[in-house]
Design a protein around this nucleic acid. Sequence first.
RNA 1: CGGGAUGUAGCGCAGCCCGGUUAGCGCGCCACGUUCGGGACGUGGAGGCCGUGAGUUCAAAUCUCACCAUCCCGACCA
Length: 491
Amino acid sequence: MAKDFSTREDNYAQWYNDLVLKAGLAENSAVRGCMVIKPYGYSIWEKMQGALDTMFKDSGHVNAYFPLFIPKSFFSKEASHVEGFAKECAVVTHYRLKNAPDGSGIVVDEDAKLEEELIIRPTSETIIWDTYRNWIQSYRDLPILVNQWANVVRWEMRTRLFLRTAEFLWQEGHTAHATEKEAIDEAMMILDIYADFAEKWMALPVLKGKKSPNERFAGAVDTYCIEALMQDGKALQVGTSHFLGQNFAKAFDVKFLSRKNELEYVWATSWGVSTRLMGALIMAHSDDHGLVIPPRLAPIQVVIVPIYKKTEELAAISQRALAIKESLTKRGISVRYDDRDTFKPGWKFTEYEFKGVPVRMAIGPRDMENNTVEVARRDTLEKEIYSITDIENKIGHLLEQIQNNLFQKALSFRESNTFVVNTWDEFVAQLDGEGGFILAHWDGTPETEQAIKEETRATIRTIPFDAPAEKGKCVYSGKSSAHRVVFARAY
RNA sequence: CGGGAUGUAGCGCAGCCCGGUUAGCGCGCCACGUUCGGGACGUGGAGGCCGUGAGUUCAAAUCUCACCAUCCCGACCA
């Protein structure tokens, strides 16, 4: 099949990397740890943005934009927040360059040193809560339901395209509320939106739950998350929603007068998903033939390839193809008609397969005679001859079917890779074998979680909301536990 | 930041140990012709500061040192 392309079994990490590069999604840039997102990759991200943005707005949120730079002093106001991010911050110290006196090039002008260094945002809680102080005086100013689409920078040690880059794109929601309950409800509602998006758009089944204290966001009271399982048996955190309590309100002195005329601190949430979703999408569905993109996120949902020997044939085929394209477009399906004569049909087949286009149509002389098209679906690689009557509805249904099939496939993969484990030996054996989600008892202490992590590299991915009550003994300490949690090795 | 590996044409690699004409090969690219229902073939052609910088030498892709970058495995994280 595709040349120069690793298989999953062969080398999973290499397979992923090849896929991203060769399908034209992204590539490494001249800047360490930062990627160039190429047009095809970016168009998938735009689809994700579009769907999420609509969901946020439908639930009452509005978009705004805050600065890329944050004064250093803001960072130290929330103690655990600074501790969590200090080690990975890019810092701006000067604002001017000059020619080197010895003519060796451009150097930093030491006279242009900033009074106070600026941090390039790793996340925007601090600058936003500093701003909210001015926006909030009364309970009537609440809630504030703001989202921002932005880039952030975290100086990561080791980067991987989409999964972990020094600069990444994301959205971060920052809301302010009058009561604790309202803030928790908000954080939970957003988690539902994320889960809905993952399952309905990305065809990616996710577990919803709470993070253990060790895995909690720096500065949060509680972190809720959605967690997915990748094909190599490793977990990927795809989205988080944090209940921040009054931590940031206290740090930035954001108070409001309640109905009872009492001065109270504001309750907060923050939540985000990033271009890491691209990594999740790629790893969840793709195969050894290349990318597989769920129809609802595919920039091109249907590609039509003409097959002809002589140019005279092409005119008639094109007429047919363009008519089909128009009827599909009217039904809201995005179609590309690829009549380039510079590539052969076989080449195009492989190319679109590699790029994960959900449906491919071929129209040749036989089809012209029989009023048919050959339809190939990317998810199963099956081919079928369709009559062109009512083609737009048939293709519409097929796209829905593919979307559902991808979700079901991912779901059954997750189910068959979720294991109930009761002893430490089983626990270790499972991790060293096929991996997957491991349901095990945990005594609830950070010490045990830390010890397990050090010995096995596995972490508690989530404490599922729907975990049934079940008395048991911690796999590590043997102490009692009320329910199972989800362990896995993670990206 | 620790361990390992790799930087030679757009991509994948050979050459390096053992220094010596014009640095090769496959794919891709360009032109023309034959092809076109699963990555076609022929003929001709273009394309290289051998990662960067110092050094050793009459002579460096090749030897030495430093630096930079990338990938893999850890620690950190969305």
